[in-house]
């Protein structure tokens, strides 16, 4: 089973889960909780339009809009993000090919130069185009590559949650030494992830405005905060649709140029 969680997955519905109405036996094992959350969020494809807002420490903001499309499921999906606004970046497209066993491959299309380029994702801790997400945050990560520990059960923003610690296994290289996740008990949506470097929280992802789309609870607002920098990036999802009849051929470098 290729259970995974990632920003890319977050963008595609990590925070979604099946309705609570589907009653299952109580789960107390952290690994099982994570896997169940991902199982519930599994879809074959997705499309949404997003509004990305970055706020730096001085309060300066920038906005971009994109159209997001994904085909495939966790760990072996392909994603295309096409920027639509502002005019300076309109037409720029990003193809992300996720692999279960290694870092994703990424290509970028720049219409002004009429050419594609492979993005060298060697420094995975680098920020993703000035946002507060790092390139590593974009990767889909296999659940088995982490050791999970149920740390506590506590309420968060009015909902009961499991507080789970995740430590990358020795085979997994990561900029983060550990992560702490809060997963809602009612719908298995992950509503917060704190990422640590040594013992310091460096990034915090919070998910809000959870609405059900095609039966899948989906966070419509995600906010990543870079705590040392004091900056944050907010992603608002609109017109979310799952399980669309998308074609594999539309998720290639050739298709990126179209």
């Amino acid at each position: 089973m290729s259970n995974a969680f990632s920003l890319s997955f977050l963008l595609t519905g990590l925070l979604a889960s099946v309705p609570v109405a589907q009653v299952r036996p109580a789960i107390n094992d952290a690994q099982q909780i994570v896997e169940e959350g991902q199982r519930r969020a599994a879809t074959t494809s997705e499309r949404y339009s997003g509004l990305l807002q970055s706020f730096n420490a001085d309060g300066k903001t920038s906005e971009k809009r994109w159209m997001f499309e994904r085909i495939g499921s966790h760990g072996k999906s392909r994603t295309i993000i096409r920027f639509t606004e502002p005019a300076e970046v309109a037409g720029v497209a990003l193809l992300i090919v996720n692999h279960p066993e290694r870092a994703s491959d990424q290509w970028m299309w720049t219409p002004a130069l009429q050419r594609d380029r492979r993005i060298a994702l060697q420094d995975r801790s680098a920020r993703f185009f000035g946002t507060d997400f790092s390139f590593e945050d974009l990767e889909e990560r296999v659940a088995e590559q982490y050791d999970y520990t149920l740390l506590a059960e506590e309420p968060l923003a009015g909902a009961a949650t499991w507080k789970i610690g995740a430590v990358p296994k020795r085979t997994r290289s990561s900029q983060y030494s550990k992560q702490t996740m809060w997963i809602r008990k009612d719908d298995y949506v992950t509503v917060r992830i704190d990422s640590y470097v040594k013992d310091q929280v460096v990034r915090r992802l919070q998910s809000t405005k959870i609405l059900t789309v095609q039966g899948i609870p989906t966070a419509h607002e995600l906010e990543m905060t870079d705590l040392p920098r004091g900056s944050r990036t907010r992603l608002a999802l609109e017109k979310v649709l799952y399980n669309l009849p998308l074609k594999e051929s539309d998720f290639t470098v050739g298709a990126l140029r179209r």
Binding site: S62, F83, T110, P111
Partner: peptide, 14 residues
Amino acid sequence: EAIVDDPLVFLAQP
């Protein structure tokens, strides 16, 4: 601060 006001614009605009 970020290297340029907007790194994506930096890459998108030759």
